[in-house]
Design a protein around this nucleic acid. Sequence first.
DNA 1: CACGGATCCTGATGGC
DNA 2: TGCCATCAGGATCCGT
Length: 287
Amino acid sequence: MPELPEVEVTRLSFVRQIAGAEVLSVRMGKPLRWPLGCEVGELVGRSVLTVRRRGKYLLIELDEGLLLVHLGMSGSLVFARHLAAPGAHDHFEMVTSHGTLRLNDPRRFGAVVFAPGEHSAQATKLLGRLGMEPLQDVVADGVTGQVAEGQTGGFDVKAFHIGLKSRNAAIKQVQLAGDVVVGVGNIYASEALFLAGIRPTLRASALSRPRTARLHAAIRQVLALAVERGGSTLRDFSNAQGEAGHFQLEAMVYARTGMACKVCATPIRMIRQGQRSTFFCPQCQKR
DNA sequence: CACGGATCCTGATGGC
DNA sequence: TGCCATCAGGATCCGT
């Protein structure tokens, strides 16, 4: 489910409340994608400093170590003072002095992993080869005014072009791979290519510098707008306050197979790339 | 090394 | 109503 906008919207929806909280207890449900990597008891007594984001990972920073949270395809977080008894798909729950953080993830492709530090082997294994942060310098933290992400370089057109040049796979799939640019999932990959007027099947290495610049701008534009709209709620996404997103109402191509293109009225087409659906307008995205 | 495909898991949906 | 096939916002692993 969640791509960068949904993860960022989730982060913004509970970072203020959880900051400064003390961990009172932690409980796990069924196994997630990876084991937690520590005993739940080890987390008790630590305090939550803040929550940052790297790609589609949330980094819950503790006074000692951090929790890396990934929502996978079907995960969502809730943070509240009081929650009903956990359900069948609630697989991680952390009770703090400020409220309870709970991960609901029916498909269990998500994960919560403890790492002793941001540069530990555990963290590097998950974050080590992530690409550039597309919204760096665009989405600022509502409290501190600082950008959500830290140490990687910003999303630079020149670096983007260099990254694409070495890839012969289709541009759509290179966007999804996350090693050139992070956070672009199946919805926003199609949307960005539409805004840039680029055919999803074009080899990444075939993008000219000007077209790379257009895609760079399109990715930023679509992700930033999606964050403003609270993300996309296709089926069941909601932020940590339980609120749905509305970007899907503004999608130009995603899930609009056969419907008229909002620009030229040509029917939107769907193809399969790497077992995933891709949507595009054959008229607006000729190559 | 880069690519395509299989894979993890559950739930919703549509055809018969 | 039941059964089966297909599809779903992700990302890793494996064979070529």
